Amino acid sequence: MIAPSPALTEALELWLAQLRALDGRAENTLEAYRRDVSGFLAFLPQHKGQAIGLAGLASLTLPDMRAWMAHERAGGVGARSLARMLSAVKGFLGWIAEREGMEMSAPLSVRAPKYQRKLPRPVGRAAARDLIQTVSLQHPEPWVATRDVAVVTLLYGCGLRISEALALTGADAPLADVLRITGKGGKERIVPVLPIARQAVEDYRRDCPHRLEPAGPLFRSVRGKPLSRRAVAKVTEAARMQLGLPATCTPHALRHSFATHLLEAGGDLRTIQELLGHASLSTTQAYTAVDTARLMDVYDRAHPMGRKRA
């Protein structure tokens, strides 16, 4: 196996460092970029039959890019994942082209494979309320139960990602009317906090036996360590199984439900985009498809000439 040249490896690290410093990309995102681009760079010398240096990238053709994509698909990579990988590779190649003054229109013109976007799977309003209530019954220790309720209430009541809820510190409490949340890519947003969510967090703080230092995590495990995503997923899973809800009823589904229910109540997309912290409105527009699907289902079942009544 022919390894990528040191110059290419160094260039990759410089690109990632720039994304970290100037664009504030999250570490998980940068690791995914490193993995995707490294795989591409490792493929090139095997495909070309010789070592490829920095200058060699200028000779990349559309067939070269398609050969790499075919190689990944043959290895079991799905269309959605390949589109993400291609985005990372094109980002790196575009940076190289600008930095080195290279002509790379051919590799940068390759199109991503088409795939059907997965629509969010929201939980119904009644189911969301039942889930939060049932979460409180999953642990015999009262303070743990109030902690779990506080977390899932923030997910549904504020539309937080689970990572954002678990990133709250003791200094954030007692919660104010709004929270300043730092989301993906270091993007900040202001999120209103409902009184019921503030009260849920206060109930937890009152009962928590651990000292909640300002610089430490707000939500703690039984042993006082930072609460893990897995613990939240586990208690949510137990509650949804008790209620007979589908496997798609996850902590992240509560965030989807927050957005969907706001849209159903007349919220506009731009506002919902800001509340969710989406960088692009197109991401938020997925919720219009969810709402349209729901309306069409009602139409089909209710109209005299609906397909499901024919």
Results as ranks from 00 to 15, higher is better:
residue 59 S to N: 12
residue 168 L to I: 10
residue 287 Y to E: 05
residue 283 T to L: 05
residue 271 T to P: 00
residue 14 L to R: 15
residue 86 L to Y: 01
residue 289 A to W: 06
residue 24 G to Q: 00
residue 208 C to P: 10
residue 220 R to P: 07
residue 246 P to W: 01
residue 135 V to D: 03
residue 257 S to V: 03
residue 53 G to H: 06
residue 167 A to Q: 02
residue 166 L to F: 11
residue 179 L to S: 11
residue 90 K to W: 00
residue 62 L to V: 15
residue 172 D to N: 15
residue 308 K to R: 13
residue 247 A to W: 08
residue 56 G to P: 12
residue 231 A to E: 14
residue 68 W to R: 08
residue 257 S to N: 07
residue 53 G to P: 01
residue 133 Q to W: 13
residue 176 A to P: 00
residue 172 D to R: 07
residue 37 V to L: 02
residue 54 L to C: 08
residue 252 H to S: 02
residue 9 T to L: 13
residue 131 L to I: 00
residue 36 D to N: 06
residue 171 A to N: 05
residue 278 H to R: 10
residue 104 M to N: 04
residue 24 G to C: 09
residue 88 A to Y: 04
residue 227 L to I: 06
residue 151 V to Q: 10
residue 13 E to A: 15
residue 265 A to H: 11
residue 305 M to W: 05
residue 300 D to R: 15
residue 201 V to T: 11
residue 285 Q to N: 01
residue 144 V to N: 04
residue 162 I to K: 08
residue 145 A to V: 00
residue 40 F to M: 00
residue 250 T to D: 10
residue 119 L to M: 01
residue 142 P to R: 02
residue 29 T to G: 05
residue 198 R to A: 04
residue 212 L to T: 03
residue 16 L to T: 10
residue 110 V to F: 15
residue 10 E to A: 09
residue 145 A to C: 14
residue 46 Q to V: 05
residue 147 R to K: 08
residue 55 A to V: 12
residue 145 A to Q: 09
residue 296 M to C: 08
residue 279 A to F: 02
residue 273 Q to D: 10
residue 289 A to H: 15
residue 197 A to W: 08
residue 151 V to L: 08
residue 126 A to M: 12
residue 206 R to V: 11
residue 181 I to N: 10
residue 40 F to Y: 02
residue 283 T to R: 03
residue 183 G to F: 07
residue 216 G to M: 04
residue 140 P to D: 13
residue 119 L to H: 01
residue 37 V to F: 07
residue 47 H to K: 03
residue 122 P to D: 11
residue 42 A to E: 12
residue 255 R to E: 02
residue 215 A to I: 08
residue 101 G to C: 12
residue 309 R to N: 07
residue 100 E to M: 05
residue 257 S to E: 14
